[in-house]
Design a protein around this nucleic acid. Sequence first.
DNA 1: CTTTGTATTAACAAAATTGTTAAACAAAAA
DNA 2: TTTTTGTTTAACAATTTTGTTAATACAAAG
Lengths: 206, 206
Amino acid sequence: MGNKDTTTEQAILNAAETVFLSKGYAAARTTEIARMAGVNHAMLHYYFRTKENLFDTVFDQKVELFANSFAFILEKNLPFLKKIALAVETHFDFLTSNPQLPQFVLGEILSNPDRKNRLIKALLPRIGTIFEQWEKEIKQEIKKGNIAKTTARDLVLNIASLNVFSVIASHIFFDMEQKKSQKEIHQYFTERKKNNVTVILKNLQL
Amino acid sequence: MGNKDTTTEQAILNAAETVFLSKGYAAARTTEIARMAGVNHAMLHYYFRTKENLFDTVFDQKVELFANSFAFILEKNLPFLKKIALAVETHFDFLTSNPQLPQFVLGEILSNPDRKNRLIKALLPRIGTIFEQWEKEIKQEIKKGNIAKTTARDLVLNIASLNVFSVIASHIFFDMEQKKSQKEIHQYFTERKKNNVTVILKNLQL
DNA sequence: CTTTGTATTAACAAAATTGTTAAACAAAAA
DNA sequence: TTTTTGTTTAACAATTTTGTTAATACAAAG
């Protein structure tokens, strides 16, 4: 055979990603995925055996992406507050580029303990590292009298709260697919991004 | 007929609420609901005709509850900042008393445009009123030089972000049903509530 | 005590959904 | 060319899930 524009397996994966991300596992239909991929639905079972298998392939990748977005990088050679501001913005931009991600991941762990554990497993090492790194810097800055008293956990949770909810709320206020609302959406995101940075920085002020 | 401890219809509704809230519409099974209610599963169709009908009964009630939680009440006869602090706390307490609510409501609107519209329809009048009321007071306070420049929308979104995400995150970090983690959960909520109030107030400081 | 309407049950039907298989097919290897 | 290997298809099977119905019980009204 060789390589078509996209291989059958890849076409199925792409379609699966689209369908699972927009409907979630339980509401997704394997036949719809196959139809969208333009292949006989037996192929789906040929390559992935079960719906759950196919889902896990997508889910694990998305969990990885989601968890990784919380591994905020603190740029060296920047004043502390600039670092934080940059981290907030980077995280915000990532989420707006992947607007379905939070609802998808958080929705799937709702009832399924196994998926929840997979998220935790992906999340803990990242957050753990962040907490340790930040905690050190934060304590120094507090001691130097540069910022108000806080903890790495609260700071990370605050950033996550503001950024994640900003994209979730956008789904309520706008029709994300609609071409004509793109301008409004863009403006909303611009304003929210600015707001979130401000809130985080102000909270660190003495 | 007579009235048992709970009528059949009510037993079904109670079970439906439990199952739908924990699994969502698509993953829920009508037979499971019937079993949990302790009735023959034909009764479910007898009283509610379809799964969707039953779901809508639950969903609409929960949407009402969720939407209403954003109709923050500003207590008269309190300084502005005290009002805001109280609103944040009240909202936070409501959410921790209904910890499954946000994920349930937000999860269900993910793919279903009709449900999304029902949420918006419930949300708009509340939020609209709030925006108007708050906007006035906020403008006054800004003019008086009491608070920093902001908008009602940003303020409401910030409160919603911090509070909603606090309960969503609790599902990741803790096993909410587990008896033994109750103490940790309580402490987490106490800390988060305090943090959220602080963040909101600090952001209003000049 | 008969009638009437509602509630309940078990068994069944219909539909939807996932998963399987045997046979056809195509490409590469021998 | 023939064989072999992996891919694809259509048809089918199995299961799950929702929904229906006919028979029955049962209480209240007349």
